[in-house]
Design a protein around this nucleic acid. Structure first.
Lengths: 202, 202
DNA sequence: TGAATTTTGGACGCTTCAGTCCATTTGAAC
DNA sequence: GTTCAAATGGACTGAAGCGTCCAAAATTCA
């Protein structure tokens, strides 16, 4: 019997997405489909067979990466020790902003914001917005428990996330190198947590 | 006698830069020279007469805006009242990140970072980097005077600037609307200053 | 008015790239 | 080994857009 319909090679799909991630990260949204095909060792037509058009390819890429990148944030962990928890949160946020590969996705989204606003909004909701909401919930709970004194949790979450990204975010967006030394990240995370807690201590 | 050399119309140059700012802000780096010419009510050739090429046009635009944007930061003002000064600083930073027009420049820079890395670096140095250094100097001086206790001024400056931009930065980069209500900005600025001062009080 | 120069606008060459077409090859399932 | 969808790759179309060229019009100074 013949090959079954819909046997599109999943391995190839992944390879295409990996290649797209790389090439888009290097060249930005202007990267050509041909360059991606070359990187994936696949024919251009195959990319169209799999994804239909460039926009759909990028959407698929974003969908795959967003949930992966933000996964660590969905595990708040123990809540009894605010400074430790805040440090862990800060560490994760700083790592994300220091991860060139993760951030190249954001860059691509910024570039494409004009052409595909829905995509930009989706990334914003899945990433920064969700993160802020999560932190805000945590801060509200800590305040309820009397361990902190946060009057406006969303605003405070903003401040916390802002302290973590700082201008690493700028450097990453501009494609400049970002210091990703684990020791320095850990130290920075501790400082953020310590200062933030002091700003919002009861 | 004939017309003098170098009589290129300065008013037209300004008009072209204004139009470029608008159109690039709307369409991003992909905006065509023709669209800019149309907006400036000028012929395409005139743009080439004035600026030579698209890259030079964008560089000129960046140079003009960067100095304008960072101007308020070059006036530190009275240093005796940390909270007031910090509030003013915060206000300026928040206004910048809330100003769609000012921020479209950053967006364009991010978009073009791949194609013109020197430009991205120049913008980074002239904007965020200079801003941080300025704030750090101020914090160091306040610490010297015993009014604050900042152990690492550059790091603290990062935190301060990060608190100001927060995720407004994201929204602005993604081309989403940003709340620019003056009252809310003023209130936010006060809060940032208050919390920051508390985090770094002696 | 006249000379020198800029501006205009439209046509043009050239390159890049998205997306299509198609004849041929590959490879999995039976 | 047969069958048939999937993959290949190379050629092709069409659209955009950068930058150039040029002849005619407008502008400025003397």
């Amino acid at each position: 019997m013949p090959r079954v319909v819909g046997q599109i090679d999943q391995v190839k799909s992944e390879a295409i997405l990996d290649a797209a991630s790389d090439v888009l990260g290097e060249r930005g949204l202007g990267a050509s489909i041909e360059a991606i095909a070359r990187r994936a060792a696949v024919s251009k037509q195959t990319i169209y067979n799999h994804f239909g058009c460039k926009t759909a390819l990028i959407e698929a890429l974003v969908a795959r990466r967003v949930s992966h990148i933000t996964a660590p944030l969905r595990v708040p962990g123990a809540a009894e020790q605010p400074i430790e928890t805040l440090t862990a949160l800060a560490q994760t946020l700083i790592e994300i902003v220091s991860n060139v590969r993760a951030y190249s996705l954001i860059r691509v989204t910024v570039q494409g914001a004009g052409a595909m606003p829905e995509l930009a909004k989706a990334v914003f909701e899945a990433g920064p917005a969700t993160t802020r909401a999560l932190i805000a919930d945590y801060l509200a709970a800590e305040t309820q428990a009397g361990r902190m004194a946060v009057d406006d949790p969303m605003e405070a979450a903003e401040f916390f996330a802002g302290m973590c990204s700082g201008h690493r975010q700028f450097r990453a967006l501009m494609g400049m190198e970002v210091n990703a030394d684990p020791d320095q990240i850990a130290h920075l995370a501790q400082t953020v947590a310590k200062r933030f807690f002091r700003a919002y201590a009861p």
